[in-house]
Write a protein that binds this DNA or RNA. Sequence first.
DNA 1: ATTCTTGCTGAGAGCGCTCCCAAACGCCAG
DNA 2: CTGGCGTTTGGGAGCGCTCTCAGCAAGAAT
Lengths: 344, 344
Amino acid sequence: MPPTLEEVAKLAGVSRSTVSRVINQQPNVRPEVRERVWEVIRQTGYQPHAAARSLATRRTRVIGLVIPQAVTTLFTDPYFPIFMRGVADACNAHNYHLMLSLFSHRRAQGAPTSQDALYQQILRSRYLDGVVVSSATLDDPVFHHLLEDGVPFVIAGRYPHERANYVDVDNVVGARMAVEHLLRLGHERIATITGPLNMFAAQDRLEGYRQALTARGIPIDEHLIVEGDFTEQGGQAAMKRLLPYRPTAVFAASDMMAIGALKALREDGLRVPEDIALVGFDDVPLASMVDPALTTVRQPIEQLGSMAVELLISLLENPQRETVHRVVLPTELVIRASCGVRVR
Amino acid sequence: MPPTLEEVAKLAGVSRSTVSRVINQQPNVRPEVRERVWEVIRQTGYQPHAAARSLATRRTRVIGLVIPQAVTTLFTDPYFPIFMRGVADACNAHNYHLMLSLFSHRRAQGAPTSQDALYQQILRSRYLDGVVVSSATLDDPVFHHLLEDGVPFVIAGRYPHERANYVDVDNVVGARMAVEHLLRLGHERIATITGPLNMFAAQDRLEGYRQALTARGIPIDEHLIVEGDFTEQGGQAAMKRLLPYRPTAVFAASDMMAIGALKALREDGLRVPEDIALVGFDDVPLASMVDPALTTVRQPIEQLGSMAVELLISLLENPQRETVHRVVLPTELVIRASCGVRVR
DNA sequence: ATTCTTGCTGAGAGCGCTCCCAAACGCCAG
DNA sequence: CTGGCGTTTGGGAGCGCTCTCAGCAAGAAT
């Protein structure tokens, strides 16, 4: 049975209040008393009871990481673990704890509780001080619940609601850079494999693609735009659909899809970059390891995760400021072999 | 301000106790009263306050997933996300919540709190009912803390302590099957790239390797045993060290290391499987996607995660049973192209 | 010497829930 | 009509903490 505040107080010969002041680093405790209390705390291994503290303070120091729906993608794409590491690191650094809420579809069928009910349950039960949402689709009900229940939250990815705080990378510019690079190399029939278009990141990257072509006066050929789902298989399938239209270059909106496309091309006997140029997006570690190494748009995935947490924490700890926070991180074109430029 | 039990009670014209009985599905409430209470709960969107409940019941319905030390590996190896999905699914299914504790080394230097202190803090503050530990090294201090503080826990992977519950796969048999397969194909100079030998999984797979050779009367050549670290780079480096000893086949203790080895071989101008046979371990999705597709030992990673959680929950909900629970899941040899047998 | 600060300490109430116990309420048998 | 019994209900205490407020001592100001 671990000791309580009360017991520590008795052992140190002071009152509960004083011990409470000591652990919460409040002033107005005589140094010698403070030291005596610390000594007892050390000896007993006392640690405040989280639930009791939460009940009194109405804060838990726990933030949630909610990853809805598209779970399948997330577990095949290296993006996710990297993002999570950023999140976890930032939590550790600020002494917050991380609650992970993953919802897979399978849960839906025959499960005692619907995903929707689960959201509500978690949010309303005040387990969490705030929430980071990643990779949600535009229509995900989680946003509705979050706003309704007034739970502070930060989205990793853009979201157009006046009360939505988010951290995003500049997907439009990133995609445009990628396509502009292909244009510069002389390509004109440039195809794109998009992400699922119910996600902003996918929409924005498509927008960047369009902008680059339009700026160059090249008309958009809708046949050269195929929707993928951010997975390798999806990329492979999309590439197959693209092949009849004979693009000379492809911009895939994620590295995993690019790798899938690579496979489809290889199966078709096409060489990259000799026969067709390929550019990805994300710069996951795998991108530099495939053959040919992937030219891609690097986004600071880990930083995205930690920034989201930092933002959320600053929101939690300065509730007076009603301002909405939005951060957009830059992307960077990483030129490797797959686009057909010799790398020195 | 969300409603409290008290308020729901007032609205339904009953006492706190009755509402509590309704929420906790206890008997001895008149059906009509029960229905009336439910109605109010529905209308108000009432959800019990987690902290208050925990304080009274001394349970949180939160379990921790602790992933110590070797974080780097974990974030490049697809093993980890798959395992986590199993864990998350099982939690969802049982209405438990998942707290994720990742500790990266970087945290160590200059951080306000040491990893050790963090463990203690989390465990002692009673945030968690129990803990699942994955991928720990043998000497990880977390085990000490867990045992000392009497926190129920389940390890994913073997651990030789009389009070340690674990879920593991049969690494010895799996490795032996892999090597026996290579023997059957006529190989005699079989090398192995082990995992970090301060992990049981690595030790056990090495043991399987040894058993297979010894059973066949082939002496162990220590030059053919090289320690890796479960990463692709590690596998690549290990393979390079192995090359001078000219093995005709290699058993890598993880798919990622096998893929690294593949790279090293290719760089050296060797073809797989023609010049050298290669077998991996894990059967991560990537294994079937590389060229040549990897022969490997499949372990039920996701099931490992969910079993660990199920075990832990059964421990938590039947505390009377003092028995130690140990589950060992079977592995399965998956024959693909990299070992040199034509797959029909 | 008296009042006013100021710094330190302790007591009490309360956070929202559970759980034990006693009271109230039938209902049936005697 | 009363006693006994099982079911249903309500009240109180308590889980371990924080936080406000009042008390107290000691030094500063009058």
